[in-house]
Each structure stands twice: as C-alpha cells, then as structure tokens.
Design a protein around this nucleic acid. Structure first.
Lengths: 133, 133
DNA sequence: CGAATCTAAAGCCATAATAGCCTCCTGAAT
DNA sequence: ATTCAGGAGGCTATTATGGCTTTAGATTCG
C-alpha cells in the first residue's frame, strides 16, 4: 500500500475539521467517517503533537486545525502520522559501503535520492487547501 | 510507509537493469542490491507479467527492460507490483451511501478523488528516465 | 535426439509491521 | 465534585515482508 491507513484517516479527519468552526471530538469524527475510533484517536494525538491540530479537553472539547488549510501540506500530515518522512528509501547495502558520499560503491544511491526529493517536493507543495479547492 | 518495499526493490532493480544490455538473473540482481532474492524474484515476476520486463529462461537467461526507460512510469511500476493503483482511498462508508455519484451522502469523496488524481498524475509523469537523468 | 544444467514460475511457511480494539488515567469545564 | 473528552498503554488481528522448496521451460552439450 502506498499510503498507510493512518495517513488516509488523518487526511479524512483534516478535511472534515477544516469545515468546522468549533472543536470536534474524536468519537463524532470517527462516526461521521465510519472509521475505527480507537485508531483515529491515536492519529489525532499524533497530529496534535506535531502542531497540526489543537486539542481541547473537557466538555465541548475536541480537535481543531491549528493553522489554515493552505499551510498544511501532505508531507506535514504524513510525517506527523508515520513518524518519519514518507518514501524513505533505505540503502540496503552495508553502512560502510553506502555513505552516499563521493566515490561511493553504491552507484544507485544518487538516483534513489533524486526520486525521494521529487516525491517529498510534490507532497510538500500539495496542501490541504489544494484538495478542498 | 508511503512506498512499499516491493515497489522500492522494483525501482532499484529497474535502475540496474536499465544499464544492462543483456538479461540479468534475479540472483545476481539481488546480490548486487543486497536485497532478499526470494522476494525480489516475485517482484520481477510481477513486473514481467505487467509487460515492464521481458523474461528469458535457461542459460544466460534473466530479465531485461521491455521498453525504454522514458516509457516506464512510477505508476506503472507500483501498479504492477502492488496489484492496484497506489494511494487508493477506499470509501469507509457503506456501499449504498458511497456511490460517488450525484447527491451522495459522502461529502468528502470528491476531495479524496481529487487527491488520488493528483498523486496518480504525479506518478504517471515521473518516469524511470527522469530518475536516471 | 536426449540428458544435464541453468533460470524463471509458483507454491507454502515464518516473521515483522500495520491496523484495529479495549481499558484506565489525566485534565478541563460546569 | 461531577462529567465529558483527550492521553497513554497494552493486546489481538490482519497484512506486508522475507525464506524455502518444488515445478516448469529453455539452452547447451554429448
């Protein structure tokens, strides 16, 4: 799978939240999206930790966007939820052989690096606002 | 993970194969890339089935590109290896509620569809030749 | 022509990571 | 103090990853 369920649910939740004025609870979010609430709760927590969402406890609490939709990129979302940059191509060669520096034995690393850059760039420029049109 | 290991290995193998004139066996490919040969063998078979690679049995057999690098897109590779279009956002609502047609209850489907289109488009335009520069 | 050999094709099995579920704890508003 | 909702952890199920063995097709050589 190219995009994990966690990222997919994060995007879904952010789309819904972008249309809400007031904080929305994880339970009602999960219900509206028909996705598992326990899993979604963890995802929302990750997004809150990353500063993409603000969280409010207590009565009438819930989650709300911390920034404008145009300032939230797909790269931000995926990095927050998956804990790392997406599409990380790990060199499968031994560490000593793959420092990605000059005269490296690993001749394919530059190509992987280029691909990773292109993907990261695409995801960084694609914001929530682009999807909401 | 955004890109599965299968896709990653497929890309790695295609990069190497794009520089070879003669067919290359799965074992020597796995050795050069330091990746599991059994897993790679399956991936190469998928690529062959999809028409991206040509396979040759017997002595001096192996795999070779079936097309020019500029005609092989990331979308082709991922679709072949993962058996479906990457980034498939499945509607989590009930089937009756999510036909993605007019008057659908599922208000977020159009946005998901748009995102999927953008990702597919990006991957379709990104070819092996782009990475090889 | 037939045997030997090389390599792809295809299956099943083990492990690791993801996806999903449940319970208790913590903090805020009334 | 009570109640509502987020925070945090452990536990199970599903899927992805990797390993192994057998089968089948193609080439070379005797």
């Amino acid at each position: 799978m190219l995009i994990t369920k966690a990222s997919e649910y994060a995007i879904l939740a952010l789309i819904v939240l972008s249309k809400e004025k007031k904080p929305m609870g994880s339970e009602s979010l999960a219900k509206q999206l028909s996705i598992p609430k326990s899993f979604l709760a963890k995802i929302l927590q990750s997004l809150a930790k990353a500063g993409i969402l603000k969280s409010f406890k207590g009565i009438n609490g819930g989650f709300a966007l911390a920034h404008e939709a145009k300032n939230i990129s797909m790269l931000d979302i995926m990095s927050a939820v998956e804990g790392k940059s997406p599409a990380v191509f790990e060199c499968s060669l031994s560490e000593s052989a793959c420092p990605s520096d000059t005269a490296s034995i690993c001749s394919i690393w530059p190509f992987l690096n280029k691909l990773q850059g292109k993907i990261d760039n695409f995801l960084a420029e694609l914001t929530l606002a682009d999807i909401l049109e």
